[in-house]
Design a protein around this nucleic acid. Sequence first.
DNA 1: AGTAAACTCCGGAAGC
DNA 2: TGCTTCCGGAGTTTAC
Length: 273
Amino acid sequence: MPELPEAETITRHLRRELLNKRFARVIHCRRDVIRHGHYRELRSFLNTPITRIDRRGKRPFLEIADGRGIVFFLGMTGRLSVCDSTTAVENHTHLRLQLGDSDRELRFNDARRFGGFGFYTRRNECEPVGIDGLGPEPLDVTAPQFRDICARDRQIKALLLDQKYIAGLGNIYADESLFRAGIHPLTPASNLDAKQVSRLLRAIKRVLTEAIEYEGTTIINYLHPDGPGNFQTRLRVYGHEGENCRRCKVPIERMQVAGRSSFVCPMCQPPAA
DNA sequence: AGTAAACTCCGGAAGC
DNA sequence: TGCTTCCGGAGTTTAC
């Protein structure tokens, strides 16, 4: 599942490959993966330098000079890569953009099609469609901001997963952050005391920063097959149902929270009374 | 109004 | 082997 660290890794990769380059041709585009805007708009990205490549939360985007951009929703299985045009085209490849003066191309692949992409225009300081309506970046959010976010009567995990309050956490890093902060996912956010809120924010920043250093958890193998390994081995609870907690040796439990599987140490993360 | 749950998209994986 | 079931990011709908 691509979350913020995976999006950051992909963004850096795209930046190395695409910044200041231009697309020359649309080789292929499956139109029904377009979330915002119209297929026609794709043409306007041709023969114009890409001036900015970044991400918002878990969504990478790229922009050309007039403020227009393409934002990618990776969903569960979305992947972005830049490769030689002669590279065999994998199944479920929904977008191929040929680079000018090069035999390379950008590809978007998404087996389950929960992902897609959208076009937007950045106007002044307003955040564009597809990148708007998102909460602050977890790595930038301040302690007072996070206190406000947590001041609502909602299960803390559901809150962390809701992109409009904080942008970039998905199921894996939400569970890992809650474990490291010693907080049960069902705890109403407004029940957390100041100490817990600050511990949670620190845990989030630590987990995400470390995961970025490891280039994410799941999807990076195809980008850097010879890379430094990934965050998989650093997960303490996610996917570890039935195994003994590293800290207290009590078996990790799996439960449903906000409709998602959640992995919890019942000892380190005591349920709210 | 704010929250929560159900439903939708889809195909790979797991289970039988 | 071949079927059925499970799973989920995020948007939408429905119900408190």
